[in-house]
Structure formats: structure tokens, C-alpha cells
Amino acid sequence: MHKPLMAGLLAFALANHAAARGEYQIETLTEGLQYPWALAFLPDGRMLVTERVGRLRMIEADGELRDEPIDGVPMGYQNTQAGLMHVALDPDFGTTPWVYLTLAYGKDSANNTRLIRGRLVEDRLEEVETLFDAHPAKAGGSHYGGRIAFLPDKTLVLTLGDGFDYREQAQNLDNHLGTLVRLTREGKAPEDNPFHGRTGMANEIYSYGHRNVQGIAYDRKNDRLLINEHGPKGGDEINLIEAGANYGWPLATFGLDYTGAQVSPFQTRPETVAPLLHWTPSIAPSALAIYEGSLFPDWQGDLFNAALVAKEVRRVRLIDGEVAEQETLFAELDERIRDVQVGPDGALYLLTDGPEGRLLKVTPAADPDSD
């Protein structure tokens, strides 16, 4: 067994014991959300939440959900996993109040992921524009990716999926299936993208060989971009992203097809980047956050992976690029976790997935010996 992984398994057991001591408390801030997907914090303490059914909702700082959704959000394609997905604020939101959204576009026979933005003016989006459409448009309603992370140069990286039935295309550099794309805030491909200007390759591609990336976070302290992605039957991954790198899908994977058939005889290949961590059986990672708050000093720099199937958040600590510790958190909720975010106040915020979704706030447990 790989030594860092063995150490991680030992620490995992110890961390579970620590969590059982009740070091945090969970508060329900907001109820009545319909399949909430992503959360963004406004500078004034309010929050924006997307609902997969096509609504962008405003939540007051005290957790009160406004009755009416934000006006001006275009309706996208709705089917199974398709709908309104991520929400992110412009890095200069205080002076340029752009809100970025991802949604599915098209119809049953031809659809994919779209990136749009609009200016938030009171309770509506204005000047809404489409910045990028992933191509080709394909049939089916699965694997859209849809998360956004901004880099220090204020470009953004958008995660995409392989469309489920088109997995071989994740190795094809002339389309966007199974890739991460890097874009300017106006939706253009930066000239320093790894394949920009190369014949037969999409200018926007930043990395490829992905299955369905639904978690992405930029680690400011260590200047690195991390993702998590869904495997098939097992083989979920955490990856450290390198510009231009091939992450293997479907040439190399630790997972099996849902039928139990082998996807590939290779778990790793010399020309592909191996994951930092893989999970079998699958936990279905749906979001990723890096803790940089002050309320939980022991969690500084740790990765928080929301999980749908496992109904938990998996905390992962990396030391020198190796997994040193894992911890299962919030399994007592017994709910699918769609998003995990670190708030400006240092609390963790969770969105539960479902027709009656909730926004939850995680803070340190009260000291029973305090006054």
C-alpha cells in the first residue's frame, strides 16, 4: 500500500473519533429551496443561491429567503442533471457588479453547458450576455460540469463534463467535452492557454481527460488549482490541475462502468496525470472548497468535498502534495450535499440537494463550560 495513503487511512479513523466529540454545530438558515445548486456571498452579507429548476434566489443575511427570484435570468434547458447551475461574483464586484452563471442550453437532441453574466441591479440582472457555449451540442441530460473558479489574473476556469455517452471525446482536443476551459471575463480564450492557436485544438481548453468535474477551488496560499470529479462506479478523484495536462478519462480510471464492465485496463498511464486521491466506492463529489477562515483553525488549508451519494462532506488534508488525512463530516444529516462554501465569517455553508433543499451554517460548538 502507498505509504501516504496508509497514513491517511489511520488519520481518517482518528479524525472520525474527533468529529464524534461534537466540535461543531449545524444551524438551518434557510428552507424551501428547490434543488439548490450553488451559493455566492454578496459584500453586504446577503447571499445568492441557484436552483437547478432555473431560479436565482436572494437570501438575506439573517437567512430569510425572498419570495420572488431575481428577475432577468434566462431559462435554459431542463432535464435530469441539466438546468441552472453555478453562480459566482466578478473579482471586482464592488465596482463592476457582474454575476456569472452556468446553465444548460439547447434541447433533448442537442445541448451542453453555457456561461452567461449579467449586472446585478437591485432585484434583477441587466445586460445579460452569453459568454461561452461548450461544443458540440450533444443528446442526453447528464454530465455538464458547470462550476467556476477565478484565478489571480482574473481569468476564470469553467468545468465541463463528457456528456456521459461521449466519454471518448474527453481525449479529443477539438471539442470541449470532458475538459476544463479557461476564459477571460468576457468569454474569450486567453492567448497563453496551452492549446491556443494550434491546428485542430480548441483555444479554450486548459486541461482534458475529465469525466464530470463538479468541484473546483483555487488555493491562494499554495498557488494551485484543485478539482474533484465524478468517476463511474468508483474512481471519483481529486486532481491538481496543470495547464495542458491529460487526466486520463477514459484511458485510465480506478472505476468500473455501471454495468460492472471494465472501462479501461489501466488505472494510470505514463502520459496521464494520476489523481492525488481516488474514492472507491464512489462518494459522488459535487463541490469543493478550501478552508481559509478563522473559526476552525485546525482546518486551515484543508479541502472540503461535498458528496451526494455518500451524504457527507469529506475533509482532506494535503501535506507536500500527498493525502495525509481524511475525515467524514456531517453524515448525521443523512442528506445529499450539493455545495460547500467557506463564508466571509469563517463558517462553513452547506446546500442540501432535493426538492426541499436547505442552506445550513456550520460553526464551532458552544463551550458547555462557558457562561
Rank of each mutant, 00 (worst) to 15 (best):
A7F: 11
L9I: 06
F12A: 15
A13P: 03
A13R: 13
L14D: 14
A15D: 03
H17Q: 15
H17A: 15
R21E: 15
I26V: 15
G32H: 05
L33C: 06
P43T: 06
D44F: 04
L48Q: 11
G54I: 01
D62R: 02
D62A: 09
R66A: 06
R66T: 01
R66I: 08
M75I: 10
Y77P: 08
T80V: 13
D92K: 06
F93E: 07
D108E: 13
N111Q: 11
N111P: 09
N112L: 00
R114F: 00
L120H: 00
V128C: 06
P136W: 04
K138A: 06
S142H: 11
Y144N: 04
F150V: 03
V157C: 08
G161P: 00
D162E: 15
Y166D: 12
R167Q: 14
L173F: 09
L173K: 00
H176V: 07
G178E: 05
R182P: 14
G187Y: 09
K188G: 13
N193H: 02
E204D: 14
I205Y: 11
I205Q: 11
I205L: 13
Y218N: 07
Y218E: 12
H230K: 09
D236N: 05
N239L: 10
A243V: 06
G248L: 05
T259K: 12
P265T: 03
R269P: 11
L277P: 08
H278Y: 15
T280I: 12
P281L: 08
L288E: 05
E292A: 10
F296Q: 05
D298Q: 14
L303N: 01
V309K: 14
A310T: 00
R315C: 01
V316Y: 00
R317D: 01
L318I: 00
V323M: 00
R338W: 06
D339M: 07
Q341W: 05
D345Y: 12
T352W: 12
R358I: 08
T363Y: 11
D371P: 13
